[in-house]
Structures are given as C-alpha cells and as structure tokens.
Simulated scan of single mutants.
Amino acid sequence: MKKLGLIGGTGPESTLLYYRKFVYEANKRIGDTFFPSLTIESINVYDVLTMCGRKDYEALTKYLAKAVGNLVAAGAEVVALTGNTPHIVFNELQSCTKVPLVSIIESTCAEVQTLGLKKVGLVGTRFTMEGDFFKRPFTEVGIQVVIPHADEVDYIAEKIHDELERGIIKSQTRDTFTAIIGRMYQDEGIEAIILGCTELPLLFAGTELPVKALDTVDIHIETLFKALQ
C-alpha cells in the first residue's frame, strides 16, 4: 500500500474521524496485525475559512501547497484534503503538486452516479453550499444539487463555524439540521442529502435522517483505498 498524506485540521474532529476510520478499515481489509503508514499535516481551519471569505484563493492555494509539500517530504505518495471547503482550490492545488490528490467531491459525484440519483441536497459550510466548486461536477453530468433556503444556510454556516469545528455537539442543532433536511425532502424532492462538511457525520451519529445520507468521509476513504493500491 502506498503511503497516504492527509491535510487535516479542517477541522480537528473530522481529522480524528478520518484517521480512525482509515486505519481500522485498512486493518480490517489487509490483516489483524496491519496498520498503514500515513502522515497528517494539521492546518488551521479558521485560516482556511478567512481566506475563503476574502476570496483570496491564491493565498489559500499557497497555504495548502505548503502543507502538501510537507507531506511529500515525509514520504506521502497520495494526498487528500480532509475538508470539503478547501476543495475550492483543488484544481489549482493539483496543478502545483507532484503527487496525486484524491478529490472528495469527485468521489461523491461518482457515488451519486453509481446510485442513479438525479436530485440531491447539499449541506456544508457557506462556501460549500453557495459556491459553484462543489456543484459543478454534478451539474456537468445532469445531477441537480439543491441547497437550503437563505436563512437555513445562515443557520447551518453559523453552527458549523461556532460549534462543529470546535467539537461541540448539541441536540438542538442536530434537531434543527434534521428539520431542514426534512423540509428539503418534502418541498424540493431530494433523493439524498450530501453531508458536505466532514464534521456532520459526528453531529448525526446514531440519527436516522428523513432521506438517505451520503457521508462524504466514508465515500472519500473508499476512493482513497483504490488510489493507494
């Protein structure tokens, strides 16, 4: 298996989730005494969000490229971003990187196509929901991506920024997010909801949502195993 490099810290809780899921899934697939070699470069999620807010994508690309360089120097042969939002500069980052990057967005789009879905909902940070970078691969293959109403976007973005990125899980937040997804299912006719923030699986752990949930962490990790062979 090739060595994986993860750009983590976006945020810390999802980085822990990635590590735990990847390591134990590798152990399950390869053997009881096997644990994979990998390196994590932890960056500051709030630096990323600030640069996105300023639309300073050149600075963001340089910031992430430095992190990739550190991973490559540590021997990483394949690199992945553990957050959806940093993918806003994925193409620019890949163009200045020597090793392959594995996209969480392309992985999720491929899964939606495999499932035969034509209309999906998306929840995540404001930049992920309102930006074009996440939706583009889907629309190019005829899949409609629906985001919440403007006031719901405000609520979701605030709770991700102030709570989930800090590892704070509140039942009231979970209930409101669930209600928003339920409204999208009833009013918009979505066939599934993309959990487009890698902290969201932690919020919804043990929760049955009104519609099929697509966990971008699980989907991404499955693609990573294929890339690491």
Rank of each mutant, 00 (worst) to 15 (best):
I193H: 07
T39K: 03
Y46H: 12
D151N: 14
A205V: 01
V72A: 08
I30D: 00
Q113I: 15
G206K: 04
A227P: 05
P36T: 02
L117E: 11
Y24H: 14
F177W: 09
P137C: 14
E140G: 01
L224T: 01
P86T: 06
L214M: 15
D154I: 07
L16F: 12
A76D: 07
D32I: 14
A205H: 05
I104Q: 03
R20Y: 04
G69R: 13
M129L: 13
T61R: 14
T85W: 02
T61C: 14
C109P: 09
I143Y: 05
E163S: 06
S95E: 15
V48R: 09
L214E: 13
F134L: 14
L117Q: 06
E77A: 00
A74T: 01
V78S: 10
E77S: 00
T207W: 01
A65E: 14
A157I: 03
M51R: 12
F34M: 11
R29G: 07
L224N: 01
T178A: 00
H149E: 15
Y185I: 00
T114W: 04
G189L: 11
P36I: 02
E106K: 14
V146F: 03
I219M: 12
F22I: 10
G11W: 00
V48Y: 06
I30P: 00
V48C: 07
V72M: 02
V141S: 11
S103H: 10
E13Y: 05
G142D: 12
T178C: 00
M51F: 09
S14Q: 04
D151A: 10
V123L: 12
L200I: 03
D32R: 14
L4N: 09
K66P: 01
R136E: 15
T15K: 03
T61H: 05
A205N: 10
N70E: 11
F22E: 04
S171Q: 11
Q229A: 08
F127A: 06
K119M: 11
I40C: 05
G124H: 07
I43Q: 08
K170Y: 13
K62N: 14
G8K: 02
V89F: 07
K119C: 13
V112W: 10
H149C: 04
L101Y: 13
M51P: 01
P36C: 03
V145S: 11
S42Y: 07
L101E: 10
F138M: 06
S37L: 05
S14T: 15
T50G: 02
E208H: 02
G196A: 08
T50H: 09
T33Q: 12
Y63T: 04
T61S: 12
T207Y: 03
E158V: 03
Y46R: 12
I181P: 09
L93K: 02
T61Q: 10
Q144C: 11
E199F: 01
E92C: 00
F22R: 04
T139Q: 15
K66S: 09
G69A: 10
T223H: 13
A213Q: 14
R54K: 15
V211T: 03
I147G: 07
V146R: 11
F138C: 09
G83W: 04
K21F: 07
R20E: 09
K212C: 02
G11Y: 02
